[in-house]
Simulated assay, not measured.
Amino acid sequence: MGVSGPERDELLADAVRMRERGEAEAARERLVALAERCADDAEVAYQAAWAHDVLGLEAEAVPYYERALRGAGLSAEDRRGALLGLGSTYRILGRYDEAVALLRAAVVDFPRDGALRTFLAMALYNTGGHREAMRLLLTLLAETSADPGVERYRRAIEFYAGDLDATV
């Protein structure tokens, strides 16, 4: 028994408002019920995943994230959020190789997103990819920091991001 159109939109909006008010468990319950009724709805699945994550229920969030990313209809921002959420969740669950693979693909789709690059660096660290993790983080730092010291040494930081073993 599916639900669509204005009824679906109102049920979804109500559940999101509940989560935003701090009623995380009630929102999760509503979103799970809605996801059962809207099995092919990527946006509902994404919101259900997020509701699980907010409560620290990472393992339970995974199938909802995966469903959201398999489906169609997510906005670019929600797709980016689902990729970040699933990649981070894989990492938290110790599924490091899956986290790296997913986050690498996400960075290709959203190359300027600093959060995706940061979470990829963390997952690379977990898989022993320390050199690449440092390169990503140093590059991100050089590109985004407004710290006067970082700005002053930006060229050196960018240089060493490419080769931390370089000497004079």
Rank of each mutant, 00 (worst) to 15 (best):
A68Q: 04
D53M: 04
E132C: 11
Y64K: 05
A121D: 02
P63F: 06
L120Y: 12
H130T: 10
W50H: 13
A48R: 04
Y90E: 07
L86T: 07
V108F: 00
T89V: 03
Y125V: 12
E60N: 12
A142G: 12
E98D: 15
L74S: 05
A123P: 04
A123D: 04
V100K: 08
P63R: 03
G87K: 02
G71W: 01
A99H: 05
Y96S: 14
I92R: 14
L57F: 11
G56Y: 02
A68Y: 00
R67S: 14
L120M: 09
T118D: 13
R135Y: 10
A76L: 08
F119N: 15
R80S: 12
W50R: 14
I92Y: 08
D109G: 14
P63C: 07
L124P: 04
D113F: 10
D78S: 11
A142D: 09
V107F: 07
Y90D: 05
A82N: 02
L102D: 06
A121M: 00
L124R: 02
E98Y: 06
A105M: 00
G73N: 10
M134N: 13
G128L: 00
A121Y: 02
D53N: 10
P111A: 12
D97P: 02
F110Y: 15
R95K: 12
Y64W: 15
F110S: 08
G129Q: 03
E58C: 06
D78A: 10
M122F: 13
A101H: 05
H52L: 01
L140F: 09
L124V: 05
F110D: 11
L137E: 14
F110M: 06
L136C: 09
T139H: 10
D109A: 15
R104H: 14
T127F: 01
R79S: 11
D78L: 01
T144Q: 14
R112F: 13
L102F: 04
P111C: 09
A105L: 00
A105G: 11
A82K: 01
V62S: 08
E132K: 09
L57N: 15
I92G: 12
G81S: 08
E98A: 10
G114F: 00
D53Q: 13
E58L: 00
F119T: 14
A105K: 10
V62M: 11
I92T: 15
N126Q: 11
A48W: 04
A121H: 03
L120K: 03
W50S: 13
D78K: 08
A48F: 06
L93H: 06
